[in-house]
């Protein structure tokens, strides 16, 4: 499914789909072969349900409030400037982030090696789609000008860290008492894994 489709589905979910798109979207969603779309549609509803309903009565335990609080605290790709618990507003950045993340992952891994302030680069590359994306060409230029040896493998650290996380999880599972299903971090991780900065 392409990003455009995802955005359309998200808009439909929010009740913000353009009227001329609406019929086509619903039709395409109802087709027998659009399993992927249907699954996505269900997940959007699931997240919405979880955020709105299936929570303990105590409002302090409210997941959505916490999620939004956490998002406000963290200047990550998921944080819009003013965040409300409103699901309509919530769904957008989520989808946007997924798209932006796929674009940004590799540049981050490479750039970590040479730029000490990658967080800024990351924020620019992901929060604003119109902002200039950093390409590997930029990376080469920088590394030549600063005379730093470029890494041979863009993702050799990520691969190594992946391996470590898998190894660690396998030991963490049987030894400790589990507070989370084992491997949740392996499956749920995103490009944070590349945040360890590299040394020359």
């Amino acid at each position: 499914m392409n990003d455009n489709k995802r955005e359309q589905l998200s808009a439909l979910m929010d009740g913000e789909a353009e009227s001329h798109e609406f019929d086509a979207l619903v039709k395409s969603l109802c087709k027998r072969e659009s399993e992927e779309e249907q699954a996505r549609w269900e997940r959007y509803h699931l997240i919405s349900d979880v955020l709105n309903k299936n929570l303990p009565d105590n409002p302090h335990h409210n997941l959505s409030a916490r999620v939004s609080a956490a998002l406000e605290d963290e200047p990550t790709v998921l944080a819009p400037r003013r965040f409300s618990i409103n699901w309509k507003r919530y769904s957008k950045p989520l989808v946007g982030a997924a798209i932006a993340a796929s674009v940004a992952t590799f540049s981050i891994v490479g750039l970590r090696v040479i730029l000490p302030e990658v967080t800024t680069v990351n924020a620019v590359a992901t929060s604003d789609p119109a902002a200039p994306q950093l390409q590997s060409e930029d990376f080469t230029t920088v590394s030549e000008s600063t005379n730093i040896k470029p890494p041979l493998q863009f993702d050799d650290k990520a691969t190594r860290l992946n391996g470590y996380v898998v190894n660690h999880s396998e030991f963490a599972a049987p030894n400790g008492m589990q507070a989370l299903p084992p491997y949740v971090r392996v499956v749920g991780q995103d490009f944070e894994q590349s945040q360890a900065t590299a040394q020359e």
Partner: peptide
């Protein structure tokens, strides 16, 4: 008994880049 800590010690090859610093992955 509850939390597990792994220590990995690895001799780096020439093609491998060194890592330094902290990196969070959820609670890990």
């Amino acid at each position: 008994g509850l939390a597990t800590i792994s220590v990995f010690i690895e001799k780096l090859q020439q093609h491998q880049s060194a890592m330094a610093g902290a990196s969070p992955l959820g609670a890990v």
